[in-house]
C-alpha cells in the first residue's frame, strides 16, 4: 500500500532532521560562523545542515570569481596614481553588451592622442559579468572584482561607474587575485630583466 513509501520518505526526512542535531552536537560551536565550518559544510563529506546563513556568514569566493570589472592603478612612490590603462580600446571592443565607454586623452598642445583614458565608464546595469574585458586587456589594467554587495536604491544615480569609482589600487588586486597577480609580476620582472640585459649588451 501507499503507506510504506510514505513512511520511508518521512523516515529519510527524519534522518536528515536528526542528523543536523547530531552533527551540531559533535562539531559544537565551530561549525557556524567560522571559515572551517563553512569549508566543512561545502566539502564532499558534509552532513547535517548545509546552508550558509548569509549575510552573517559568507561563502568565500574563489580567485576566478568575477563580478563587475575595476581598473587597476599602481601607486608611485610620491603617492600619485599611475593608471595602467592605455585606453587602447580592446575591452570596449570585446565587451559583448557594449557597456564600456572610453574617451581617450588628447594632448591639448599637439592634438595627438595620449595613452591614458580621460573618461572611462562602465554601465553596470548592462554589464553581464562575462570577464572578457579582463581576459583580453593586454596591459593587465582591468580586472574582475569580488565585491558582489553593490545593490543601491537608485539605479539612475549610481549605476554608471566612472573613473573615480572604477579605480582601485594594485594592492587590492593583489589581495583578491593573489595567484594571477604573482604570475603577472613574475612575468613583468623577467621581461624587464631581459630588456635591461638587451640594453646592457647594445652599446658594447
Amino acid at each position: 500500500m501507499a503507506i510504506t513509501g510514505l513512511i520511508k520518505g518521512l523516515g529519510i526526512t527524519l534522518k536528515h532532521f536528526i542528523e543536523t542535531y547530531t552533527v551540531d552536537l559533535k562539531d559544537g560551536k565551530k561549525r557556524y560562523n567560522t571559515p572551517e565550518g563553512i569549508k566543512e559544510r561545502s566539502s564532499a563529506d558534509t552532513k547535517g545542515i548545509f546552508t550558509v546563513q548569509y549575510p552573517f556568514e559568507k561563502v568565500p569566493v574563489p580567485e576566478a570569481f568575477r563580478y563587475i570589472p575595476f581598473l587597476v592603478f599602481d601607486e608611485s612612490e610620491s603617492g600619485e596614481k599611475d593608471i595602467r590603462c592605455t585606453s587602447c580600446g580592446i575591452c570596449a571592443k570585446v565587451c559583448p553588451p557594449q557597456c564600456i565607454w572610453i574617451t581617450r586623452s588628447v594632448n591639448p598642445e599637439t592634438g595627438k592622442p595620449v595613452p591614458k583614458p580621460a573618461k572611462f565608464f562602465i554601465d553596470i546595469d548592462i554589464c553581464m559579468n562575462c570577464g572578457l574585458c579582463a581576459e583580453f586587456c593586454p596591459f593587465e589594467a582591468i580586472r574582475m572584482d569580488h565585491d558582489y554587495e553593490i545593490s543601491s536604491f537608485n539605479r539612475f544615480d549610481h549605476h554608471i561607474y566612472d573613473l573615480d569609482k572604477l579605480l582601485k589600487p594594485a594592492k587590492y588586486y593583489a589581495k583578491i587575485h593573489p595567484k594571477q597577480y604573482a604570475e603577472e609580476e613574475a612575468a613583468r620582472i623577467e621581461k624587464e630583466a631581459k630588456k635591461a640585459a638587451a640594453k646592457a649588451t647594445k652599446p658594447a
Binding site: 585606453s87 580600446g89 570596449a92 571592443k93 565587451c95 564600456i100 572610453i102 581617450r104 562602465i122 554608471i160
Partner: peptide, 19 residues
C-alpha cells in the same frame, strides 16, 4: 538598433556613457 555589427563606434575612442 544602433549599428549593424558590434563593436559600436560610439564606445571608443570618444565614448561617453549614455543610457
Amino acid at each position: 538598433y544602433e549599428e549593424e555589427f558590434k563593436p559600436y563606434a560610439s564606445r571608443w575612442p570618444n565614448g561617453v556613457a549614455e543610457r
